[in-house]
Amino acid sequence: MTTPHVRKGTPPKVYVSVYAVLLALTGLTVAAARFDLGRFNLAIALAIAGTKALAVIVYFMHARSAGRLIWLFAGAGFFWLAILITLSLYDPLTRGWLPPPEW
């Protein structure tokens, strides 16, 4: 990550292509939301947003040329976010499973 040619390397063409992809994906997510796909609506929306986020991280934020350590921390951030969301959702999603105790 410190070698100069890597730091300067990205040609503007790459940025512009990523930009085009991001715009296209924005259009795609709008289009996909117009159809009623049940629970897949959410999955598709999140998958597209995730792809866009990854593109921004890899190309615009230069994670591609960053060291392993930075990947580790960025990954930890999202992993801990996943812990937060799944474990807090576990409660409302399982509330009806057991009947309330009879006293």
Binding site: T29, V30, A33, F35, L37, L46, I48, A49, K52, V56
Partner: peptide, 17 residues
């Protein structure tokens, strides 16, 4: 920017269908 990329579909597009 990334935060908004997630906010947009979650807030604006939830009820579009």
């Amino acid at each position: 920017d990334i935060v908004w990329i997630f906010l947009f579909p979650m807030l604006y597009l939830m009820g579009a269908h």
